[in-house]
Amino acid sequence: MAGSIPLIIEKYEPRDKGNLIQILQDVQRTEGYIPREAVEKISSHLWISKSEVFGVASFYSQFKFNPPGRHSIKICLGTACHVQGGDFLLNALKSVIDISPNETTEDGRFDLDRVACLGCCALAPVVMIDETIYSNMSVIKLKETLNQYE
């Protein structure tokens, strides 16, 4: 996979800073995240520093800096889920699989994101793992659910 980064970057004009976000999006699409190596390559291709590339990339929440896990957990912290204890679920994940938002577990099993609303506020708190939505979650239910994923 890593071999595709130079190919993506080469498509764009060298030294043309205007393409930065496009390149980042392309890398994110193919790799699933922005690896360190990509930041270095983009920096030398566009002649802007690594810090600046990272500064732009870290501004937008669409860009991730960790490789995606095999399964992605999205915890809703929209108003309803927040009130119903979405925070507890977040803390539970920290203690059970040692993961914070925007991180990936060390074994690469899960990655975690916090989202604002999944559109089913009546079922709060809601957790989405891969494409499945789990409603009326509790810490215990969440722990059990995680076991279904390898």
Binding site: R36, V39, I48, S49, K50, S51, E52, V53, F54, G55, S58, F59, Y60, S61, F65
Partner: peptide, 25 residues
């Protein structure tokens, strides 16, 4: 171009790519 604003909102700090050392940046 070593220092840049990284992150956004109330987590913004002045920093480097992936929090690498000043020298590496």
């Amino acid at each position: 171009h070593v220092l840049a604003f990284v992150e956004r909102g109330n987590t913004t700090i002045v920093g480097t790519a992936f929090n690498e050392s000043q020298k590496d940046a």
